[in-house]
Design a binder for these strands. Sequence first.
DNA 1: CTGCCTCTGTGGTCTAACCACACTGTAATC
DNA 2: GATTACAGTGTGGTTAGACCACAGAGGCAG
Lengths: 232, 232
Amino acid sequence: MRTHELVLQWIEKQLSDGDLALGGRLPGERAMAEQLQVSRTSVREAVRILEAMGVVRAGVGSGKDAGTVVIAEPGSALGSTLRLHVATRHLPVADIVETRVLLESWAAERARVGVPELEEAAALLDQMDAALDIDTFLALDARFHVALAQAAGNSVVSAMMASLRGAIENYAGELTGNLPDWEATCARLRAEHRAILTAVNNNDGGKAAELVAAHIQGFYKEAGVGSQPPLP
Amino acid sequence: MRTHELVLQWIEKQLSDGDLALGGRLPGERAMAEQLQVSRTSVREAVRILEAMGVVRAGVGSGKDAGTVVIAEPGSALGSTLRLHVATRHLPVADIVETRVLLESWAAERARVGVPELEEAAALLDQMDAALDIDTFLALDARFHVALAQAAGNSVVSAMMASLRGAIENYAGELTGNLPDWEATCARLRAEHRAILTAVNNNDGGKAAELVAAHIQGFYKEAGVGSQPPLP
DNA sequence: CTGCCTCTGTGGTCTAACCACACTGTAATC
DNA sequence: GATTACAGTGTGGTTAGACCACAGAGGCAG
């Protein structure tokens, strides 16, 4: 077993045993190296991996943002992983979209009325009406979908859904320029969002799921996403 | 931007541009370091991250297994990430199980009859009838479920489904000892597997999905999985 | 032809040093 | 006394250079 894997194992045990909790701080790299009788290099490789997994965040200097802190951001980590695998042509973009439809439809059907996430979603829709540029709109759109997914109360589903979106974010973002009429598309998306939220609030999960599926598939289809980009 | 992130970016570009394909070999760590004008340490940190993502595999020595090779194993990588987040108590085991039921039901409903994966699944069931010990049985069981998921033809869903299973594999494995009567459970699981495969082959996707959901939930419920393990 | 042995290139590990950064405490200054 | 300037301390980030184990390739004796 490689040295950095020993370090990983040690840290995972600290987490499992509860000796290290969310928001907690890992010992300094030099201290950990001495404690485990390994080099700082190996400790750093382990920390790098945990950072890529979204389990810790490393910060220089001193103070509240300094040191290596335990966080919980599986979404961005899973997103990066999926994005790389898309780059290798192992995961087709179409499968990513299909899976996103699956997860998000499920979440829309199960969304619980009255949770704060739905109120946030409604607030986001209001902000989207006032959004001036495309980038702002898309950022708010992402947050709306995440909020909606979170309303279902399954953190794994919402993390995966966010990661799927993130994996093809750049790729899809480039294609928004291909849209024939952004103003029209934007208006349509806004209307669809309202309809989805209304269905959820009316406890009509089935309809909400249908609307979400059509909403996502419609956007990607219009943007021309779904087939793999050709090799140059 | 940190140095190892530059290296990651460079490698990702090589993948996106198709200059580096699945099965291809990365330049040696020393060569890459010189080419990018960074230290070997930074190159190694980037490679470590890619390895954790299941994008490459590093092998010492020389010959076919040597060097850093591009692979495509998102399943195990996602599984490790989820397992760590379960350790931090951020992702409840119950959500993992629920998501697995969601993905696997969908896959069972969409499984295409006639694909080689279904034949493999059938062969695995035969092997399971002859399996002597629990570990062998569980390993074959895992492969059966993966094969079934792959029959739906969505590589993202099958990768995620495999990773969910892997994330709680050890945890659930320890609990099989709690089963009141393994022989009886084993016989039941085998029968359920047969029923699922039969439903799929009869093009009865709806029934297959129901059976899969009951199968998974039943197992975890019997093993006592679903509530978070108490802190010591 | 066979077997051994050196050579070469791979990743794996370690040491020791330096850097940039952000806070902390102290001391000089107004 | 309050304020400002500055050295001190500890954090992760980066680098250079060395050595190790490993596995194949090729030469060399037998």
